[in-house]
Design a protein around this nucleic acid. Structure first.
Lengths: 299, 299
DNA sequence: AGCAACGATACCCGCACGGTATCGGGGCGG
DNA sequence: CCGCCCCGATACCGTGCGGGTATCGTTGCT
């Protein structure tokens, strides 16, 4: 029968406060980052809920009724107290620390937006960043060095839960004066005879296989073993090695990237230990999926 | 991008308070008139929102963390203050009066449930009931005697907005010793030669036509003119007249009703002047549609 | 070991919230 | 005086979330 009917929640009160201060639905809607019609409706519902008129409407504007003025005062203090509750509780919870592992430049610019958004929501939490090199695609998740990792698939996910944040096409990085540097796109096997990066032995096999160039080159194993982005770029510049990269990156002078037609895209993922259900991690994942688009959960 | 993410609304806090007091998700869910799974989820979301664990879960029960205990105190006071806001604002609005018109027994038992639910939501509002007779299907809406009417369609709805609350089959009322009283169902024309009630001249034509029996009888106009339920019943008992009624009613001793196969159902409606948008009326309509099932709006 | 209790998870559905498009009506200028 | 404009209200639509049912995993007790 649905008789709850309690519409006076904090969201609606925030709406009303905005309208009461702007005395104009359109401007209030802008301030609330929404459009005018649902705001009008929300205020109407609030009025029917309380059973009294809060605003005098006229085509030239809006004025508060006495009840509206009363609600404005009450609502402001209530909202302030609600914020107070947040800070109080998180203060009692103490300064928790969340350690985020990133794989080289996986996070790039969005990572800073992510950290900013997260710090805004959890001002008391400490966020430590630990940047990993190519020896560990989990960036320290398994060893417990970090709580959550921004990294790139694929790697062994037993015991680890990941969420795909984005899927980037992958290309090959060449010196700008390479004969193939001007091509629109390439196939992997066109570069099978080049020297390709190798990842260090002992790293995750799936991950090593994905990033180590074409199978033939990986088999030969005549390329340099790289651990950092810097090593990759230097070796390309110095001895003409080639290597894979996500095409979203900016490259230094003297290097270009060419799209590959036969290499599956690389997933930027956020990962955490499946057994670790701390709210800070949940919240971080939540913010991350919000900052990037929608995402699907796996493993 | 959806970055609002402010889950700490009053509803969620009510949930948490219930769990904190019961220390048991199942019992808390019962108290909240819901089931356990969405409650678990809501608390989880609250924890990720605040970024700290509020409850220690174990298969044998639940315990508050220090943060949980803090939130419990804060939340209780905040909820109390929220209720305070309600009462404060409605008090400032003053004791408004809502006059409800009912058409004879249209409201019947559900009417009392409606009034109870409405009084519970608006303790300060005065509700006056004005019972109308059959001379006015709007029960005083047009003349401004009432703000809102519980009545029966059809009638002229220009300038009036109605919502159908329910649709009742209509039957004919007979003396229990009438030769046709034992029939399972009847057609209207089987009773065309009887004397039928007539409604007073000058009432709404559509309404008069609907309730005045078969066209032939209405044409003859040889039945008594009735204004009240009492008059109807008395005239059936005394001189064998017959009349229409919604089959939902209980009838006094000595009378029975028989279903009619060729009479369209009668709509129980709630009606108000279209120009009258007072929140009290909106709220009353809202409660009414909740008390009866879902409903559709017309005119 | 088996069972019972309890919270968590998976999955589904209806609705409410927020969006776009449009209306109505009062004020003001040409 | 008519037409345009401003502003709030309404209509309608799509989607995400809050609720539901069914089931699982774990733990403790018998």
């Amino acid at each position: 029968m649905r008789v709850s009917l309690l519409l006076m929640d904090l969201r609606t009160l925030r709406y009303f406060v905005a309208v009461a201060e702007e005395l104009h639905f359109g401007r209030a809607a802008v301030r609330l980052h929404m459009t005018q019609p649902p705001l009008s409706r929300a205020i109407q519902q609030l009025e029917t809920d309380l059973g009294c008129t809060l605003l005098h409407r006229s085509p030239s504007g809006v004025a508060l009724t006495t009840a509206g003025a009363a609600l404005y005062d009450e609502a402001r203090t209530l909202l302030a107290q609600a914020e107070h509750v947040r800070t109080r509780v998180t203060a009692v919870a103490g300064a928790a620390t969340l350690t985020v592992g990133t794989l080289a430049d996986s996070a790039e610019q969005a990572g800073t937006r992510l950290a900013a958004a997260y710090r805004q929501r959890h001002p008391t939490a400490r966020v430590r960043i630990r940047e990993a090199d190519f020896t560990d695609p989990t960036a320290g998740l398994r060893t417990g060095l970090v709580d959550v990792a921004l990294t790139r698939a694929p790697f062994d996910t037993t015991g680890i839960t990941i969420r795909v944040l984005r899927s980037d096409p992958v290309g090959v990085v060449l010196r700008a004066d390479d004969p193939l540097a001007d091509r629109e796109s390439l196939r992997l096997d066109e570069l099978a005879d080049r020297r390709w990066f190798q990842l260090p032995e002992g790293t995750d096999p799936a991950w090593r296989a994905y990033w180590s160039g074409p199978p033939a080159a990986a088999e030969r194993g005549d390329g340099p073993v790289v651990r950092t982005v810097h090593e990759c770029l230097q070796s390309i510049l110095w001895d003409g090695t080639v290597g894979l990269t996500s095409l979203a990156h900016a490259l230094p002078e003297g290097l270009t990237s060419v799209a590959l037609t036969d290499k599956p895209s690389s997933d930027l993922v956020i990962a955490w230990n499946s057994t670790d259900t701390s709210p800070l991690i949940r919240s971080f994942v939540h913010v991350a999926t919000a900052v990037y688009g929608a995402a699907r959960k796996t493993t």
